[in-house]
Every structure is written in C-alpha cells, then in structure tokens.
Design a protein around this nucleic acid. Structure first.
Length: 626
RNA sequence: GGCUCCGUAGUUCAACGGAUAGAACGGAAGUUUCCUAAACUUUAAAUACAGGUUCGAUUCCUGUCGGGGCUACCA
C-alpha cells in the first residue's frame, strides 16, 4: 500500500541525506488533512527527524521531499507546511488501482482463511429471560466481530453458551408445573421464550407472596426463606435433575425446547447465527474435574466447610469460590470446563468472549485460574468487554419495568420505518410484500447500524428516533446511498470498464483514496475487534459519495473517460458498502439481494431480507441492573 | 472503603502522541427545469479541572472533581 511505499522511500531518503538508518516506526505517514489537500495526498511528520537533520523543520521537509521525488516514481510533487511534508501521488496511481479492482466483488474480503481458528463466544443469554436491548448489542457485536475476523483472513468459529441448568431453570419449571395448566406456546399464542420467562417471573411473585405470608405469622425473613415450600420444591427439583429423574428431564427438555424456538426467531431477525452451541449441562462436570485437579496440584484449597477456593490476593484480586460447601458448582466452575472444552475442540489462536463489562472481574479471574493451572492457552483468552446500552429516558431497570424487549424493539423500529415512509409518500407503487420488506430493512438496518457504530468499550445511548433518520450517521443514510448507486449502475448497463481518464477531479480522488483504504480499515477493525471502525468508515464513504454525486454528472458526462471513471468509482463504492455492511450484519438484510428486479422503484434494490439460520443459546443475565 | 472503566459542541458519536480537535442531530441561512432532495452547500458551537513527560498531549503519568461497573456459597 502506498503509505508503506512512501514510508520506505522516506527511510531511504533520510539514509541518503543524513547518513542515518532510522526505524520506519519513527515516520508517521497519514492522509493529508483537507485544508492542505492542494499540496498533497499523504503527509509525513518530520519533527522526529530534526535531531538527525540538525536543520529547521521546513528545511528538513524540503530536503526529504526532493529526495523522495527522485526516488519514488509514484510521487509527483510536494509541499511543506511547518514540519509537515505533503506528498502528491500521481493520478495514474489511483486510476491504475481502479482499473485493477473495479470489478472485484470481494474487494476488502480475504478469500482464504489461514491459521488456527479464533473462537468467538457471544449471545449466551439466560434461558429464563427473553432477549432485551442489552442482548442486541451483544449479538450484533459478536456476529460482526466474527465477520470482520473472517474478512481479515481468519478461521472463525462462532459459539454460544447455553445456561440450561441450575436452580433458576427449576424455578420456571416448577411454576409451570404448579400453575401452568399445561400451557404451551401454541395454546397460549406466546413465543416460547416469553412463555417460560413469564413462569420465571411468576415463581418470583408467588415466592414473595409466600414469604410475606410467613413473615406475617411472625417469622423473620431468613426463617421464612428456609420454610418456603416453593423454594424447597425447587431445590428438590434440582436434585432430581442432577439424579437424571426421567420426568424432570422430560419437562426440562420440553421447556428448553420452547425457549430455543423463541430465541431462534429473534436470532433470525437479528441476523445472527452460530457454528456450535455449548451447553452448561455438558460442561459443568468437566469444570468440577478441573477443580479436582487443582486441589491435587495445590493451586486450589478447601476450607473447613468443604468449599473450594483459589487465592488470588498476590495477583491483586481476592479469594474466589469455585465449589460450594455442598459440592455444587458455581458460575465459574462451568466456565473452567467450557474453556477447556473449547481449547480441546479447536486448539484456537484466540478465545474471545463477548460479554458485558460488568463481568470484567469474572474473566480476569478465569484467565488467572487457567494460567495457574498451567494451561498454555490461558493467554489466548480475551474478554471483549462492552459497555451498557441506555435509552434516552435513562437506564433499563427490571424492577421498574423499563427493560426494552428485543422483539418489541424490532417491531417498533419497523413500525417507525413504515410511518416515516408513508409520510413521505415514497413508495406508492409498491405491493404490500415489497413494502413490508422495505420497512424491515430500513427499521432493522437503522437499529443495527446505530448500535455497531459506537466503540464497543463505551457505554452508549440508543435513540430509536435518531437511528432511523435518513440524514446523519445512520444505517438508512448508507442504505440510501447504496440504492442510489445501484440505480445508476442499472441505468448504465452491465459492463462498465474503466481503462483510463485524462484527469482526476478532487471529489473523484478523495473518494478513490477512501476506497483504496478499505482493506486497511478491515485490518484495523480486526486488530481492534471493533465494528465501529467499519461503520464510521462506511458513513464517510457514503457521505463522500453523495458529495461526488451531487457535484459531478455521471451518466450524462460527455467525456467517455470521465464517464467510465465515475461509473467505475460508483461501482467500487457500492462494492465497498456492500462488503463493509456484510462485516456488520448479513448484507442482504440491509442492502437487499439481487433477486429483486427493481424496475419501478429503486428502493427495491435495497430490498429483501434473508437472515441467517438461528440456533439455540447466560452471560447476559446482568446486563441490566436490577 | 478497595479495584476498574469513563468525562470532547446543547445532544449522540470520531480523532496509531502530530497540522487549524472531525462528523451527525438540533439551531441559523441556502440549493430542485439536472443520474432519487430520505440528498447537497454555508454557518455558530466542545477536549471537566490542576500539574507533569514530550519538539508536539483529547490521547501517556499524577492528583482533584463528576459518572458507570465490579467487590455473592447469583449468573
């Protein structure tokens, strides 16, 4: 890439001028800021070289500039502002780039994957709670990071961890048994996950009623809890489950099945999917074995009451419980087993966990334990920790009933898209299924883009109204730009072949250089595990394209060289938007597939939602505060 | 209290230690006989505070103030 070529020549120039070999890292090559674009395309900061040159910044820059001009065939001129050397690259270089890549439909995406896989865990919700806004961020991040890693040439395995066992699962089962009257998703008309979630809530309500009744009789809260018949029955059910009681297992399978079916629908709409599902019910025993191993090797210790702990005080942390005094496992126990299983299954380069930042401590501890247990792969554990999602009205709180359900939110986004479209009267010639498809694409595209454009590390505010605006840094703005380009390409006909033009307009070269940088952006996003880098880049591409579109005529351009140049740039822009969007979400969900023949209205060109296959899914239980 | 993350225009987001801190929304003012105006152009507006390191700090370090999270034999 040209930045590296330029840096290489700069190193040589310094060597020849000042007889000093410098590290390329000393030289920062960056895109020239717009204010000085009249001088050059890329800039070199020469301040770090002043000690070597022993000359003024301006003089040093001029000397290097002249030397680079003689060394570098791609350079055609330079300008100097203070310590900044601005190098102009020949237009032919950018045209050649366009000639080479104009019809490369996989531009920016690596075709072949190499190396051991990267395992990305995401989603992992609690099967008692339907997915909410917090999960949406988790799912979108996990899916997108996986796509970005793939695009950068990694083998990626997307995995989900299902929290399908434990006392909380028994609570919803018990409530269904006692009060459910045989209700099923079809009989109630509820989604499976919602139905089970309702019984979980019902257990909690009945339990509290029982407690207050007992406390009215004079028991303390603790006594009441111990005397609770409901809780006793739940515990009994857990014991039965662990003892593989047939009837309990049957109910367990049935109700889990309902939840998975419900989650499946939500996953499908979100457009996420998984390569492998891990179930806690299948990993917690392995976790217990690892605890056993740790006890024998002396890494772990047992307290008098029988509970097992690890001492991490020397590491600046605390003592951490790994097994309860009654021998049952805790959250961490199963994670030890799950991590081991993944290491055995894939021998991965990296084990990425997409989990909210409230669990930072948990993953620090997980990594440390594995290290102390002598697992060489412990260092490959990486917690992709993301911030909370808030609403303009404030935080979601389950107690206050302000949790935004994922399905409801998606419905609302689609409804807003409908209302806005109808208000503008844009699609009067659409049939109903086309219109529905459009609302889906715009509504869901808005939601997904808005959430992914923010740096994962940061807390964010999701503003539904703002997200769906066609003006501004939004998904619909990018979708609209893509639709505009497709419209032009359709009118231009199929074979656009650019072979050269007389000159480059600044709008053309700015856009072209931006397109040129796409692969670098993918690399950066993969390195940082940050979809926001791709999202913000795509916005810039779309903005730049709209400017270009407004400023220059394309189809009606009379100069054939310029016309084909602009068409080829348009073509590449649409490829970059399509491939880039595909690294955020399944691209046909937000940009449409080619199956439609959008003759009557170009909005159809962004139509048609596909959606990936879904699969069943704990870690998200606490992304909302309670 | 301890640990940790974060404080950038009115608001929501950007900025490998580099130029005059970018956008978007909202505010103000414009652009349609022309490939989609769900677009484009112009404009006012910000680095919480105090030190330090550096040729250069929004970025790194220290402290203060303000906010989030964690600190369960919950997950």
């Amino acid at each position: 890439m040209i930045e590296n070529i330029l840096a290489g020549h700069a190193v040589n120039a310094v060597n020849q001028l000042f007889n000093t070999q410098i590290e390329p890292s000393l030289l920062a090559v960056q895109r020239t800021i717009p204010a000085f674009r009249n001088q050059g395309d890329f800039s070199l900061v020469v301040f770090p070289l002043l000690k070597i040159s022993r000359k003024s910044p301006e003089e040093t820059a001029s000397l290097i500039g002249n030397k680079i001009l003689s060394l570098m065939p791609e350079a055609e001129g330079f300008g100097v502002v203070k310590g900044y050397l601005n190098i102009r690259i020949k237009p032919e270089y950018w045209m050649q780039f366009l000639i080479t890549h104009q019809n490369e439909f996989s531009y920016g995406k690596s075709e072949a994957a190499t190396g051991n896989p990267v395992v990305v865990e995401y989603s992992s919700p609690n099967t008692n709670k339907p997915l909410h806004l917090g999960h949406i961020r988790n799912n979108l991040l996990g899916y997108s990071v996986s796509q970005i890693l793939k695009a950068s040439g990694k083998n990626v395995v997307k995995v989900n961890l299902v929290n399908d066992r434990g006392i909380h699962i028994c609570k919803s089962m018990l409530a269904w048994k006692l009060y459910g009257n045989g209700e099923t998703p079809p009989s109630s008309g509820k989604k499976g996950d919602k139905l089970v979630g309702d019984f979980y809530v019902m257990f909690d309500r009945k339990y509290k009623e029982e407690l207050s009744a007992l406390m009215e009789k004079g028991l303390t809260e603790e006594q009441a809890a111990a005397a609770s018949g409901l809780m006793t029955q739940a515990r009994e059910m857990l014991l039965k489950w662990e003892a593989r009681d047939e009837e309990t297992l049957k109910l367990w399978n049935t109700m889990n099945g309902w939840v998975y079916e419900g989650f499946d629908l939500t996953y499908k709409r979100l457009g996420v999917n998984f390569d492998k599902i891990y179930y806690e019910s299948q990993t917690y025993l392995l976790g217990k074995k690892i605890v056993e191993e740790g006890l024998q090797s002396g890494v772990l210790f047992r307290k008098e009451d029988g509970s097992v702990w690890i001492n991490l005080i020397d590491e600046g942390l605390d003592e951490k419980l790994l097994l309860r005094s009654d021998g049952t496992s805790v959250y961490m126990t199963q994670d030890l087993g799950t991590a081991q299983l993944r290491a055995d299954d894939y021998n991965p380069d990296k084990l990425i966990y997409v989990v909210g930042n409230e669990q930072n401590y948990h993953f620090d501890v997980l990594k440390l334990i594995m290290k102390k247990m002598g697992r060489a792969w412990a260092d490959s554990i990486f917690h992709l920790s993301y911030g909370m999602v808030e609403l303009p009205e404030g935080k979601m709180k389950s107690r206050e009933g302000t949790v935004v359900d994922a399905d409801d939110l998606m419905d609302e986004m689609i409804a807003t898209a409908r209302a806005m479209t109808e208000e503008l009267g844009k699609i009067e010639d659409f049939n109903s299924s086309e219109a529905e498809a459009l609302y889906n694409m715009v509504g869901l595209g808005a939601l997904k883009y808005f959430i992914l454009k923010v740096d994962p590390k940061k807390n964010m505010t999701f503003n539904p109204r703002e997200s769906i605006d066609f003006n501004g840094n939004t998904g619909p703005f990018i979708q609209y730009t893509h639709a505009r380009i497709r419209s032009i390409m359709r009118k231009a006909g199929d074979n656009i072949i650019f072979s050269g033009a007389d000159n480059l307009h600044p709008s053309e070269s700015d856009l072209l250089i931006l397109l040129y940088q796409f692969p670098q952006m993918v690399e950066l996003a993969a390195k940082e595990l940050s979809p926001s880098i791709i999202a913000n880049y795509l916005f810039e591409v779309a903005r730049e394209y709209n400017q270009f579109y407004h400023e220059l005529t394309i189809l009606k351009e009379e100069n054939p060289g310029s016309r084909s140049l602009r068409l080829a740039i348009s073509q590449m822009t649409s490829i970059v938007i399509k491939n880039g969007m595909g690294m955020l979400v399944p691209e046909d969900v937000v940009l449409g597939s080619k199956k439609y023949k959008p003759e009557k209205n170009i909005f159809l060109s962004i139509l048609r939602g596909g959606g990936g296959g879904g699969a069943p899914p704990t870690r998200c239980a606490l992304t909302i505060s309670s």
